[in-house]
Design a binder for these strands. Structure first.
Lengths: 138, 138
DNA sequence: CGCGGTTATGCGCTCGCTTTGCATAACTGG
DNA sequence: CCAGTTATGCAAAGCGAGCGCATAACCGCG
């Protein structure tokens, strides 16, 4: 799919440059071989959760209070996985807390030492789970 | 989606009545408001993992002996993952048993405390694995 | 307020994947 | 081998994702 690669590129662009408008982004994407209108970019940013801060687009960092309970980061992987990065030794307790929330889109969780794999039903559920888990630990 | 609801209805029908042919099933579905040809029903049954036993369609049950050996539930997640819910502390032994079965569609398993992630090749393999693992613990 | 610049969104089109029906092949029990 | 039942190749219909266009909404600033 074209969209996914484009979004990857968008992330890499906003990480490496200071970008202030969707126009700029569009131009840079085009130079990288991705033709996309401002409409699409707007939707991409929304979907990626990118926000404008101090006039530039950036990826918001995971919540601060969360790490108190062991959660350091939360990322989607593929279509049906969410990976939670935790403080060393905290993965199990993070997993337990997530399990207790009984989020319906979650099929199961698997805790290692500092990482939890969260299996979800499918792509759409993935987004929902990201949101709900962040809320849970927010 | 129409298909999902129809398949739900099929499950409820074969649970409550003795149904011996796809024709009967088709008729009953129609009475319930689902128009579907025998082709579709055949594919639905395949997809649901329904089997014909003693001349009637039934859902193979896992529950009996399974939980004795630690397996509580088995669910697909996305396209290439199956999640096995286990009794606390039993995940490793469940995983070992699955590994020993050497099911070819299984790429690998990963056990936590009460959950096993089973990675499979793709969607079709997923279905097959669900079936085979249920058999294994049936 | 109004204005230019920026971003969000309703609408409709396209495209590709899924689901379906038809016809027919394959299978099964007797 | 036969009648009844189930599986399947194929092409069409259905459906949703992604997109662009046009335009509305928003935002900072004078």
């Amino acid at each position: 799919m074209h969209k996914t690669k484009r979004q990857q590129k968008i992330l890499s662009l906003i990480r490496t440059r200071r970008i202030g408008t969707q126009q700029e982004l569009s131009a840079m994407l085009e130079r990288a071989g991705f033709v996309a209108t401002q409409s699409s970019i707007s939707r991409d940013l929304e979907e990626l959760g990118v926000v404008k801060h101090h006039g530039y687009y950036t990826m918001p960092r995971a919540k601060e209070g969360a790490s108190a309970r062991g959660l350091l980061g939360l990322d989607p992987a593929g279509d049906c996985l969410v990976v939670a990065k935790c403080e060393p030794g905290m993965a199990s307790s993070v997993a337990v807390e997530i399990d207790r929330a009984a989020i319906p889109e979650i099929v199961g969780t698997l805790a290692g030492e500092d990482t939890v794999f969260i299996a979800v039903l499918e792509r759409k559920a993935q987004r929902a789970v990201l949101k709900k888990v962040l809320e849970l630990f927010g």
